[in-house]
Design a protein around this nucleic acid. Sequence first.
DNA 1: CGCCACGTTGAGAAGCCTCAATGCAGGTGG
DNA 2: CCACCTGCATTGAGGCTTCTCAACGTGGCG
Lengths: 238, 238
Amino acid sequence: MRKDIHSSAIPVICRECEARHGGICSVLEPDELLRLGRQARRREVPAGTELISAGVPVDTFANILSGVVKLTKLLPDGRQQIVGLKFAPDFLGRPFAEASNVSAVAASTVRLCVFPRSDLEDMAQRSHAFEHRLHTQSLRELDDAREWLMILGQKSASQKLASFLLLLGTHIDPRVAGFSNVIDLPWTRSDIAEFLGLTMETVSRQLAHLRNAEVISIEKNRHVTVLDQAALRAEAGL
Amino acid sequence: MRKDIHSSAIPVICRECEARHGGICSVLEPDELLRLGRQARRREVPAGTELISAGVPVDTFANILSGVVKLTKLLPDGRQQIVGLKFAPDFLGRPFAEASNVSAVAASTVRLCVFPRSDLEDMAQRSHAFEHRLHTQSLRELDDAREWLMILGQKSASQKLASFLLLLGTHIDPRVAGFSNVIDLPWTRSDIAEFLGLTMETVSRQLAHLRNAEVISIEKNRHVTVLDQAALRAEAGL
DNA sequence: CGCCACGTTGAGAAGCCTCAATGCAGGTGG
DNA sequence: CCACCTGCATTGAGGCTTCTCAACGTGGCG
């Protein structure tokens, strides 16, 4: 394994990077990684930062190293709907299109590895494996989106909340392989409501309901512990 | 343009085929088309035919030549949600996965061009352009799915119906480039309800509402004519 | 003709939203 | 140090939308 012995071949910025494992960089050869890595820059942004604006051209892409990014769409009347969540080591940006038709907003403090759009598209053109990897992520996002369609279309408020907590438990901490019973919500009640197509008040009431049923416990509003995972699944209609 | 002069180089089955233009076959070179075309078979199925079952491995892919295919997901309690619609010249099947996690059902009489899964994956591996084309379709499906998320998450029953009719008007007839004012619904009221996350009765009432407002006219239950497209857009919240 | 599937219409119930009051914690200035 | 403000969360009351349940129409077909 030359590429591991000669670790100098790996850009400094890429060492200890999660995207090198599960992310899109995982399929790159050392020389390709070097080329992309030369242009890459680390960036840390606070919650609320708008990373991509719907319809506005962006000339960068990014890997998410930690944190949660929400994808939102805006209706002409001002209402907003969250259409997806991205976690490490997902990548951010819309390949092969000038601009995305969704906005991306940091939903927590987010660490990113940013690189120029042109480099990514060059790489996609040069490396079939790289484009394949991008394709795979798109397909996974499609599956996720359809899962959410199911939830938004068919479920009651309590089922939506339970499904949401289950999703978070399996994604929010990239270090935990399976399900994490401890969830620090990076969102306000309004944010959660937006994601689930509910109102803030309904979210609050349903959380209270889950707490009263001793399925979860809540501390300091944001810190949730799942006490009874089976009950939570039942509540989600699974 | 040798490939057009020597039309004998194009498989008989591929002549006059819509998928050769907008579809995935459009990026294939004549010799590649020949290889894929040799294995391809035309098939026509009636409405209701299950083309793909969620979780069941399938070893074929298909281009849709005409008709509408609905993608559905099933909840454990038996409720169903339509998570997508496919029109000609979309292709059908989940690349790079044994089985899809959605079911595909013919929503009208559907004509297909079916070919083996292995051939498609070979082609995707061999031809970067072909994989890129598949990727592009996946990205478009992702955009569509997110559009529906918006609709299901935020809109009232009448807005959902209006959005649905607008979608159909722009997709249902592949021969019409823009918006078709005449829509022959290939579905029952229950099917529409399923797609929109509503009940049959609500769909019926909202259609009656649009008819009374003289935005649409309805004949023989299935045949809808859009009388006032601007009013329909307003109703959809656009 | 009568059956059956699909569609329409109505009345009442349920769920969620809207509006409004209150609670609670963290930060700021007197 | 405390009073106040502000943003987020909770709780309650009432209303609106949609669902549920049920009756009735309608068109196609044996």
